[in-house]
Amino acid sequence: MFASREFVSPEGLRLDGRRVNELRRLRVRSGPLTDADGSSYLELGNTRVLVAVYGPREVSSAKAARQTTQSSDRATVCCQFSMATFSGGERRRKIKGDRRTMSHASALEKAFSSTIAIDKIPPRSQIDIFVEVLQSDGGMLVACINATTLALIDAGIEIRDYLCASSSALLNDITVIDPNQNEEQSFGGSPTATVAVLPVTGGVVYLDVDTRLHIDRLEELVNQATTGALTIHTLLEKVVRDRTQSTVSTTSAQQNA
């Protein structure tokens, strides 16, 4: 068993050289797939995800059709979450449809159903979100939420606000932000909080703590993750602004010409 000082050195540095309140390097690309309505590629340290968004479009899947008949005045959000066979430490034949991926898919579905301005989307239509994890190194859901936000904006789908996520973990009484897989799985699974917030308009859309945790420590953990999410918001906003700027300048310059 590792001792906590091995995860955070006396100088306050973690195993990968970060400080306790430092995020991993975030690299994003908006619109890598040309055939999707909207897409994004996001790297959070060594976690890499690719998201494609289609819609709003006519209801086609059986699941969406079922939900549509239940509430005919709303659009439906469908999410498919899958992991590449080579995404984890060991190669797995099929990582799709097991309990963990299903729960991630439903978490994304619920989080984005309340982030998309559903009153602005035509009723009886469907928005499909396809998430593919190419490499997983902790904070998988965090990466997926941030990448999906970017893909939805790329698709021009009306949303209330950015949905930005981050996580924090408690490693033997030290709160670290944005843990990697090594830190998440230390001590046989350290308490990790994943938080998704709407940064501009306020409000927590998703909050999950995956092991038992003393209630006194919850607030600190959530606050740290929220701080991380707000940092990610400023980074994502810059990416969106730059891409919008470049699209507007190439399309409107010729419109005037």
Binding site: I153, E158, I159, R160, D161, Y162, L198, P199, V200, T201, E237, V240, R241, T244, Q245, V248
Partner: peptide
């Protein structure tokens, strides 16, 4: 102003 860039939530 007119034709200013905005992003969601702004």
């Amino acid at each position: 102003t007119d034709s200013q860039l905005v992003t969601p939530g702004e």
